[in-house]
Design a protein around this nucleic acid. Sequence first.
DNA 1: TTATTTAGGTCAGTCATATTGACTTAATTA
DNA 2: TAATTAAGTCAATATGACTGACCTAAATAA
Lengths: 161, 161
Amino acid sequence: MTDLNKLLTPLFLSEKEIRKIIELIFFSYREFTLGPDEILNKINYGRAHHRVIYFVGKQKNITIKDLLGILKITKQSLSRVLNQLVKEKYILVSIGEDKRTKKLCLTQKGLDLEAKLSKIQIDKIKSIINDAKESDINGFKKILYSMIDEKSKKIFNKLNE
Amino acid sequence: MTDLNKLLTPLFLSEKEIRKIIELIFFSYREFTLGPDEILNKINYGRAHHRVIYFVGKQKNITIKDLLGILKITKQSLSRVLNQLVKEKYILVSIGEDKRTKKLCLTQKGLDLEAKLSKIQIDKIKSIINDAKESDINGFKKILYSMIDEKSKKIFNKLNE
DNA sequence: TTATTTAGGTCAGTCATATTGACTTAATTA
DNA sequence: TAATTAAGTCAATATGACTGACCTAAATAA
C-alpha cells in the first residue's frame, strides 16, 4: 500500500483496524463457546452435540436432511452425534409423513439440557445488552447478518419466520 | 417467564431476539473461517496453523509461552503444529536473550502464507465496512470487545499497543 | 551455593469432530 | 417401471485437542 493510499484510507478501513476485528472475532467466539463446552465436557459430549440439540430445539420435527443443511456437515458426522443423543434419550425420532424422512424432536431431558446450555450464552448476551447502547447492539446484529452467506441467510430467515 | 415479564421486556432483550444473535454468531463465524480453511486444506494444514501463523506474524519474536497464552492450548497441541511450520520453513526459531526462551518469527514463505490467508478475511471485512454505516461498525467492534474476558482483553490491548 | 522455579520439549494414549468413498434400503416421484 | 431422494452404514483418515508423566537446561531465590 502506498503512502497516498494510506492517507486516503479512513482509519476504520485500515488494515491495522481490520486486523483488530479479526482478533476480536477470534477471542469473542472462543469466550462465547467456553461455557457450554465445559458442561458438555462433563457428560462426554462436544460442541457438535450442542449444535444438534440447539437446532432440533429451534425447529421441532426437523428432518435429518434439513438439519444437515443447517449444520453443513456430512451425514456420517451427524450420525455419530445424533445416534448418541437418541440412545441417551435427549432426542426422539419418529417417522415423517413422507415415510423416507424422520422427524427429530427434543425429549424433556433434551429440553432441559438445551435450556441449560443456551442459558449461559443467553445470559452472557443479556448482560452485554444491558450495558450497551441499543444502537451498538443493532450495529452488531446488522454486521453479523451481512457477514453470512446467502444460503445461511435464507436458513436463518426461515428459522425465524 | 410470565406474561407480565414479557410485556416489560424490550424486544431487543427478549429470548427470541437473543437466540437470533446466537444463530448469527454461529453462521457468521463459520462463514468467516471458511475461506482460509479451504486454502489451508490444500497444503494439509488446518485452522490451528493459521492461528499460529497469524499471531507469530502479529507479534514478531514472540516466545512459546506468550503464544500459548494467546492461543490457550497445551504445549503438546502447539508442538505438533509449530514443528510442522518450522520444518516446512514458514517459521524461524531463534534463542532469546533469556536462553531458556525461544523467539519465533515468520520467514518470507510464512509472511506470504499469512498474507494470503488473512487477505481473504480482511477483504471480507472491507467489503462489509464499505456497505455499512460507520456507526454500525463501531457498534460491532464495541460489542465484540465487551464479549471477551478480562485476560483476553489485556492480551488484545497488548497486541495492539 | 544449593534449591526451586521457569521455559521448553517429548512420549504415549485418548477423544471429538470431521472428512472421503463405497454401498445399501426403502419410499417417492417422474 | 426407472430414477431420484432420504436415510443409514462400514471403513479409513486427518485434525485438533486433551491428560499425564517425564526430561533438560537456564534463571532466580533462599
